[in-house]
Amino acid sequence: MSGTTTTARAAQRGSRPRISSLSARRVRALARAELTLLIRNRPALFVALLLPTVLTFSLKTTAEQADLSGTGLSVGTAVLPGAVGMVLLFAVYSNLVGVYVGRREELVLKRLRTGEAADGEILGAAALPSVTIGLLQSALLLAGGALLLDAGAPARPDLLLAGLVLGVVLMAVLAAASSAFTRTTELAQLTPMPLMLATFAGSGVFVPLEIYPDRIAEICRWLPMTPITDLLRGAWTEQLGGGETLRSLAVALAWTALGAYAVAKRFRWEPRR
């Protein structure tokens, strides 16, 4: 049985403080477990690590065949934002929908809530491995692309940074929100599809919006991921004006806030029974 004595326990009880709302130690413990799980989940690892790179090559083929004259884009500036968009969608968004739904259905989220970790720590720590992989992979693709596609270094690194940071946060928040509408782990393959398809077609991943008619392009600018690819593209093309930059930031933040609201209202910590 337990080795501690009654007096030792009493002393511990007296000095036990209120737990803080954010603890690096708790987040580290949870994120570490999550990283272990990701490494052991081969299909998820494949989607997160290889798919975006493979698809980037197909983006390159598409861009090389497209008529980019008059858009002010090169193959490099057409492909690179799309590549990052791909990483964000596969490594962060789609992957995290599966993570949140899987942990919920295994009752892991419910069990964690009986412990000391705060809700934000639980959700944030679960996202941390995917977010880190997403950022590292983006950095690698951008560096590789800058060299191989002659895009060079970004002229506006501030826009690049804003796009990346907003992108991973937005994807994580939307993943948590999507999981609320996903009843089973099987459906977690399906519920990310609408946003992914909309992003492929309408947010400048497969085709830059510059080649769309103005009116369609205008509608597409309000999609969740368009401001992210616009910011990233602007980092190289310098075609994003002050007003457009502000609008991109505002649209991205608005979607993030909307997602966070949906999470606060609808997120489910345990399976429906």
Partner: peptide, 9 residues
């Protein structure tokens, strides 16, 4: 280890 990491003391 995970659970110990989210538990004080």
């Amino acid at each position: 280890a995970m659970w110990a990491g989210v538990t004080s003391d």
